[in-house]
Simulated scan of single mutants.
Amino acid sequence: MAPSADSIPAPAVQSAGVIGIGSLPNQRHKIVAKKGANFTLMVAGESGLGKTTLINTLFSTDIKPYQNPRTRHNPQPTRTTHISISRAHLSERDFTLNLTVIDTPGFGDFVSNKNAWSPIAEFLDDQHESYMRQEQQPMREGRVDMRVHACLYFIRPTGHTLRPIDIQAMKALGTRVNLIPIIAKADTIGAQDLEIFKERIRNVIRAQNISIFDPPENTDGSPFLPPPYALIASTQTHQTPSGPVLGRQYLWGIAEVENPLHCDFVHLRSLILRTHMLDLILATEETHYESYRRSQMEIRKFGESKARRTADNPKFREEEEALRKRFTEQVKVEENRFRSWEQRLIQERDRLNKDLEVAHASVKALESELEAMTLGAGSGRSTGRSLVR
């Protein structure tokens, strides 16, 4: 009798031997090195916090050109007024990184900054929408992926806490992209005040339930420095006794960009480029993009155009409220005009009634006068006949 399949003993697993699965990371490294990587970085926040300078400092090259640098004749440089895209190809150790930097218009300069971050949120949604529609096509070669993998949100170094505009903007952006809050121009605050400011920002982020990118532990198990990151950005090199350094020159000395005792620039660069770039890419793919795709698939049919629900879009909700307000005001204007016209008609009717009453009284008076004249004429003829007789 032949033994059944269940009775055949399974081969023993040799844990001490090498079977080859340990080489999978090397295979993955070869594939990634051959294809390269695409990474999209966005900068957002208030105006005048040095977004362009930080990008150029972070990648040690002029990726984002200065529009109009600050000079003696032009103390206020030209600010970014629209979303601009810059691309660069960086190579290091035979590995190529296709980098895309998205510079957004600064906000907070106007009296009313309500929903000033809406163009940025719409841009993020549009990139998810564009990629989702490309996935639905029969031929998917040559897809253009502009999904943003990380957004550096610039916070003004006030030393107090997050402003309401920062809270609302970070809430709107944190659900769409890996948000990394940073404190710009950290050299304008003392070291002790800076640590207090960081802790206040963390408390507000927890209290307001703002979603930010919390970096996981390093490969050696050590915890990574939590955000926000206090940064000093500069592309100028200064000579020191220990050699040339990047930094800003002051009367008391040089605020060094790459000195961990002066700012957190080294930690941020390590987070984005050295240790957690793939984590940012995977979080964009598996969390933010999937959340957008799932929400869109629940409210529309396959192949249908993007659904712009006013309940989810602050811009269209504001436009709807403005149209409703305008319609209400127009109705009130028409009602007032109708009431005024009705009042004029009533006044005209009363005037005509009075004129009619006066005309009737005049007619009655004339009739009475005519009757009296008729009676007088009749009595005069009777008297004349009697005298003739």
Rank of each mutant, 00 (worst) to 15 (best):
S15F: 04
G17Y: 11
V18Q: 05
G20H: 00
Q27N: 07
Q27L: 14
R28D: 02
T40H: 14
E46R: 15
D62S: 12
K64R: 06
Q67M: 14
T78S: 11
T80Q: 09
L90D: 03
F95S: 10
L99Y: 04
I102N: 09
G106F: 13
N113A: 08
L124N: 01
D126H: 13
Q127W: 00
R133N: 04
P138G: 03
P138Y: 12
R140T: 08
V148G: 10
A150K: 13
Y153W: 02
Y153G: 03
R156G: 06
D166E: 13
T175H: 12
N178R: 11
A186H: 09
D193F: 07
N209G: 01
T219G: 07
G221K: 06
P226V: 00
Q236P: 04
Q236L: 11
W252D: 08
E256D: 13
D264K: 03
T275V: 10
H276R: 14
E285R: 14
E285F: 05
Y292P: 08
R293M: 07
M297A: 14
F302W: 13
A307T: 12
R309K: 12
D312N: 14
D312W: 01
E318Y: 02
E318K: 14
E320T: 07
K325Q: 11
T328M: 03
E329D: 15
K332W: 02
Q343D: 11
R349N: 07
D350R: 04
R351V: 00
E357N: 15
A361S: 11
L366T: 09
E367F: 15
E371M: 03
E371V: 04
A377V: 01
